[in-house]
């Protein structure tokens, strides 16, 4: 009987990480940034029906980059987690923190135990009445979780876009400026004009009633930033 090949744990983890990163870097990017009235989600997405950004609960939204089928099932699991918690306790007890932790746990488990890691990077954001309490969590393919302030980017050219934003971002921007900045940032990374049909835009708007999530459709987008 042949002996199984020995692969060191370090080597195995490194291989998996490289595999996941390679998958994610092929995809397009998503920017999340805090503006005057809430949190803006901006994705470069040529499909108008296969969304990367989604509502999860009253104050919580989700964004996923990487392999669609994988972050889509994570998105659905997140909505089930949130609705179940809100049903068992109360709507106020559903928090981005607990959701982000649940994501981190399951991504971490899959990364260490399955042969193929998930090729995804996800964001969970929650809006609060006072802007300094807003929460943005970024969760990586291996379950690594970090909380971000102001802005963050996931997906393909995340690092380059982050550097672009770092120089230009200021807190308390009106929606129009935040949108323009996001477009410039994404265009700078791909070195080409972004068509408005390829933009998926949504906000968590503090001024809305119970459900704060709202998609900004192309007509409204054109009206805000001009064509």
């Amino acid at each position: 009987m042949p002996l199984p090949y020995y692969v060191s744990p370090e080597q195995m983890m490194q291989d998996k990480a490289e595999y996941a990163q390679k998958g994610i870097s092929k995809g397009r990017s998503i920017i999340v940034l805090e503006y005057q009235d809430g949190i803006l989600f901006f994705a470069d997405n040529p499909s108008s029906s296969l969304n990367k950004i989604s509502e999860v609960y009253d104050r919580i939204a989700f964004a996923g980059a990487g392999k669609y089928s994988e972050f889509e099932s994570l998105r659905k699991a997140g909505i089930r987690h949130a609705d179940l918690k809100g049903y068992a306790y109360s709507r106020e007890d559903v928090t981005a923190k607990s959701l982000a932790n649940a994501y981190s746990q399951s991504l971490g488990t899959i990364f260490s135990q399955e042969i193929k890691p998930l090729e995804v990077e996800i964001l969970v954001a929650e809006i609060h009445d006072s802007p300094d309490k807003n929460e943005i969590y970024r969760i990586l393919y291996d379950g690594n979780i970090s909380d971000e302030k102001g802005y963050t980017v996931i997906g393909g050219r995340a690092d380059a876009i982050k550097i672009f934003l770092k120089e230009r971002y200021s807190s308390n921007m009106p929606l129009k400026d935040a949108l323009k900045l996001s477009i410039e940032a994404l265009e700078s990374a791909v070195n080409m004009k972004l068509a408005q049909e390829n933009m998926e835009v949504a906000v968590l708007d503090r001024n809305k009633n119970r459900r704060k999530f709202r998609r900004i459709k192309i007509d409204e987008l054109t009206a805000i930033i001009g064509s």
């Binding site: 969304n51 989604s54 659905k76 909505i79 089930r80 609705d83 809100g86 049903y87």
Partner: peptide, 15 residues
Amino acid sequence: RLFQIELEHYEKLEG
């Protein structure tokens, strides 16, 4: 209450 959640749940999952 369950019916309200049901409708919202469907809307969020299916878009």
